[in-house]
Simulated scan of single mutants.
Amino acid sequence: MKKENSIPVRNSLLLLLTATIWGVAFVAQSVSMDYIGGFTFNAVRNLIGALTLLPVIKVLDKTHSEAEKKRESSASGRKTLLIGGICCGIMLCLASNFQQFGIKYTTVGKAGFITACYIIIVPIIGIFLKKKCSPFIWIAVLLSLCGLYLLCLTPGEGLAVGKGELLLIICAVLFSGHILVIDHFSPLVDGVKMSCIQFLVCGILSGVPALLFEHPNLSGILAAWLPILYAGVMSSGVAYTLQIVGQKNMNPTVASLILSLESCISVLAGWIILGQHLSSREIFGCVLMFGAIILAQLPQKESAVL
């Protein structure tokens, strides 16, 4: 029983680490745009992410049991892994590129708030997929939305829907789909291998418009080597893999709540690393979000006891 109870806690910590890496990655993402285009950035970072996981896969393969190796090497196992990786890669490519270009046409605050609205889109889509949510989780979703509003939007700033906002709304829907696709495939396949395929697909798909419209050059990529390396190794290779592993056997709505902390952590990172002070409004927004995450865990703990 203790081992079963520890699984949601372990997964929650993995997703919290994911959100932390993504939150800090906003700095890398912003800096890189001074040197290269959005498609180029996403193409290079995801290809680096795929390469990063190759030695990890080789090491982890040695730890798998004979039963796991037999299941993974079967025709059906390979097919499920390939389909899952391709589906995740397509969703990630669409979502990340809509986000990248949406940020160009609106404020960072609005971008953070609208993107993180997947926390309410996921349970709404889940209703149609017959995924039930307890009242505690719905309250946690509303608390998180209030926290994100206080954290990301300045007083008097409206939410008029312009070009940037429309792109980010589409991005939020696509990230919701990405979370639900991972929820479906992660219990069926090796998470690290699926993550590697995901990055390869996303990198190739992003590379096509990069070559057609942005004409990337080596000097620009080398000039942005540090943010690209962080985004490729940490944000892509490490964080998205942690997301796949952490979401395994977890309620997708709870997972989306924890992952939405990336907006909160990005503000905290700016405060700690760059010396950007938080207002009382922003601090209260952080408190609401952290409170929502704690509240979202309560139903799982109760169900485990039962």
Results as ranks from 00 to 15, higher is better:
I124W: 05
L129E: 15
K130S: 08
K132W: 09
S134C: 10
I137D: 09
I139P: 09
I139R: 04
L142G: 08
L143I: 09
L145V: 13
L145G: 13
L148Q: 15
L148C: 12
L153C: 10
L153V: 07
P155C: 13
E157R: 14
G158V: 15
G158T: 15
L159W: 09
G162A: 05
G164Q: 12
I170T: 03
C171M: 03
A172E: 08
A172G: 06
V173R: 06
F175G: 07
S176M: 14
G177K: 12
H178L: 13
L180W: 00
V181Q: 07
I182P: 03
D183Y: 12
H184G: 10
S186T: 14
G191M: 12
V192L: 03
K193P: 01
M194H: 08
S195R: 04
C196L: 02
I204D: 11
L205G: 06
V208R: 01
L211C: 14
F213H: 15
E214C: 00
H215N: 09
H215S: 06
N217Y: 00
N217K: 00
L218M: 09
S219A: 13
S219M: 05
S219I: 00
A224K: 07
W225F: 08
W225H: 04
W225P: 00
P227L: 02
P227Y: 02
P227K: 01
P227I: 04
L229H: 05
G232T: 09
M234A: 09
A239E: 06
T241C: 12
T241S: 13
Q243E: 08
I244V: 15
I244M: 08
V245E: 11
